[in-house]
């Protein structure tokens, strides 16, 4: 177990290092998010109530759009120069590789949201009555769900041909997550993070557990040659 943790840390370290150095993917991701934020906020004549209702939906749409290239990126790096075979041949279990890739994706999504959320709320001047706490909780759970589906599907290698293929496969699977996240955000903005909010949060948590477990089971077979 200690050994697995050790390997997990070094794979994560390697992934983050390569991602930090290949700046292209990051800029696409962040730019996509910013474009949606700006387009949404520029509609200055839209009523404040309308913005309050739609900000959750648009925020998560922006995160989703920005996340698509990210989901494939971790594996695109491995496909170069046959690195994937090189990694599979090392004494590391598939589940450890999966968790490392998942952690890298969750982290990347978190960084993206740290940038997008303030941008969305500041530019559209929608107030956040309950503070950022409930939103952070939603983001955390939603990130794990988005990343677990993205990592599992990304490793199937079907996204190899084009990003569009990945969207077709991932979008229907992620609808409940995006729905729950958008609904939670709307409730937070409306200032009633009460019982209904918790129910949606529970749905996200169940989704996380289910899809991380499925990813762990499927990763080994999905990544075979």
């Amino acid at each position: 177990m200690r050994h697995a943790m050790h390997n997990l840390c070094w794979i994560l370290h390697k992934d983050l290092l390569t991602e930090l150095r290949s700046r292209g993917a990051w800029s696409t991701m962040v730019l996509t998010g910013i474009v949606v934020a700006v387009i949404f906020s520029v509609q200055s004549e839209a009523a404040a109530a309308y913005k309050q209702q739609t900000i959750g939906c648009l925020l998560w749409m922006a995160v989703f759009l920005a996340a698509i290239p990210m989901m494939d990126r971790g594996f695109a790096i491995e496909r170069e120069n046959g690195c994937w075979d090189g990694l599979r041949q090392l004494p590391v279990a598939g589940s450890v590789i999966f968790i490392a890739k998942l952690a890298a994706n969750v982290l990347a999504l978190g960084i993206l949201e740290c940038l997008l959320m303030p941008l969305f709320f500041v530019l559209s001047s929608v107030p956040l009555p309950g503070g950022a706490g409930p939103l952070v909780l939603v983001a955390l759970l939603a990130n794990i769900a988005l990343a677990s589906v993205g990592t599992t599907v990304g490793c199937l290698g079907v996204g190899r041909r084009s990003g569009a293929a990945l969207v077709v496969l991932v979008l229907p699977l992620l609808i409940p997550v995006l729905l729950a996240a958008a609904e939670c955000t709307r409730l937070t903005v409306a200032g009633n993070a009460g019982e209904v909010y918790w129910r949606w949060l529970q749905l996200l948590a169940v989704f996380d557990v289910l899809f991380v477990a499925a990813g762990l089971v499927l990763f080994e077979t999905a990544s075979e040659e």
């Binding site: 390697k14 390569t18 120069n81």
Partner: peptide
Amino acid sequence: LAHESSLYSHL
């Protein structure tokens, strides 16, 4: 030693 280098381009 695989057919390809198995080396990460960014490291």
